[in-house]
């Protein structure tokens, strides 16, 4: 099939960017979206043009490295699918596609479709962990965890940190990301001692990063490649409120 691509080209983080049009022929329906771009890049290279920069690594939808907007939707039109797992069979001959990088103040563009998401690492560093040094752990079965709890935790822990939530959010908020980490650890017994501090610190850091606030639009859950739901944001709010007003800075019970 034949496609027309409009791709955001920006030489570096300070240069102005613009949309540039490319025609691609011979797209196979079995290609992944990124393989389609690989083929275009090989052609651009041989023509002496600058290939399009985009991030990707595992190409199996788990590392969270890839991601850009395809026709105004983070990771493209297929639900619960990263753009590396999006295959061209979901497009048809003659389609016109607009590719743009994640856009939020917290994710400055590095080049073309690649952005800097280190803000997400800083949010985790603010408190997204259990403070246990290597070697200090009790036997793994010493603390039973109800299966349902483990499942809720796992649903949230599935977050791949791709940043699609923030890219898609009308407010540019990464609450789904922050909420997922707070939920992952906050529902497990192992995460209880630091639950309050974690919620306060991670929310504060997300605010600091300019990853704004949730007004419950639900755009994030619609594009989350791992199907994480708004429930994690409610839980983040709950842990935050409890930490702030109920426990007033004391450790959670």
């Amino acid at each position: 099939m034949k496609l027309t691509l409009h791709i955001w080209r920006q030489a570096n983080s300070t240069a102005p960017g613009r949309m540039v049009k490319y025609e691609v022929d011979d797209v196979s329906e079995h290609m992944s979206f990124l393989e389609m771009l690989d083929v275009l890049n090989e052609k651009l290279t041989l023509k002496g043009e600058d290939p399009i920069a985009f991030d990707s690594d595992c190409r199996e939808g788990i590392c969270g490295t890839c991601g850009f907007m395809v026709n105004g939707v983070a990771h493209g039109p297929l639900p619960k699918t990263t753009v590396c797992q999006l295959h061209m069979r979901h497009f048809k001959d003659g389609d016109v596609l607009y590719l743009e990088p994640w856009r939020t103040r917290a994710f400055p563009v590095i080049k073309d479709l690649a952005v800097d998401r280190s803000a997400l690492d800083r949010i985790v560093a603010a408190g997204g962990f259990v403070s246990i040094d290597t070697g200090a752990a009790p036997d793994a079965n010493a603390i039973p965890v109800p299966k349902e709890r483990a499942e809720i935790s796992m649903d949230a822990a599935a977050c791949i940190g791709c940043g699609a939530c923030a890219a898609m959010c009308p407010n540019g908020s990464a609450s789904l990301f922050t909420g997922a980490k707070i939920t992952h650890l906050g529902v497990l017994p192992q995460g209880q001692p630091e639950r309050n501090e974690r919620a306060l610190r991670m929310v504060a850091q997300a605010t600091e990063e300019g990853l704004s606030y949730c007004s419950n639009h639900g755009e994030c859950e619609a594009v989350c490649p791992k199907g994480i739901t708004l429930e994690v944001i409610a839980r983040m709010n709950r842990h935050y409120i409890k930490a702030e007003w109920v426990d007033r800075g004391q450790p959670a019970e």
Binding site: H6, W8, M19, G218, E219
Partner: peptide, 9 residues
């Protein structure tokens, strides 16, 4: 964004 769709809102 030049193009932005609404998916969940």
């Amino acid at each position: 964004y030049c193009r932005k769709e609404e998916t969940g809102s």
